[in-house]
Amino acid sequence: MKKYLSIIVVSLFVLSCGVAFSYEGSLPDDTAYVGTITKIDRGARVIELTTKFEKTPKTWKLHMQDECQIQVNTTKNPSEKGAFKKLSELKEGTLAEVHGWPSRDGGKWLARKISILNPDDYMVKRLEADAKGGVYFGHEP
């Protein structure tokens, strides 16, 4: 009996390890998120981003650091490439890629760069097409 019990315990442990280390879309300690900016609190310098191209979209609260740049990454307008923007110019509904990392105490996710994306850019189209085909962004292959 003990033998069977230990086998079950070990199996459950191995299974839980597998689940714990599997990647099912974006995670709290990711250092980049891709999605739509759904809410902007300009006073607190906090944005909410709902991820795209994942099986289950998630919403993350991202705290903009003083040095957080807002920059046009891809655009239909060549003269706008790389243009820096102010927070007051950032709009809800913008497709963006945000880079940063969680603070070590786990309290906040610290945004260091907001890159504005062109929805028609090839990378966006690629991620969309992959997701439609069942290859979701951030999932373990």
């Binding site: 250092t31 980049a32 040095e67 740049q69 880079h99 940063g100 990392w101 260091r112 760069k113």
Partner: peptide, 13 residues
């Protein structure tokens, strides 16, 4: 210089 957020190019200041 700047932060290392992003790919190899980082987030240059």
């Amino acid at each position: 210089s700047g932060s290392n957020a992003g790919n190899n190019n980082g987030t240059p200041d």
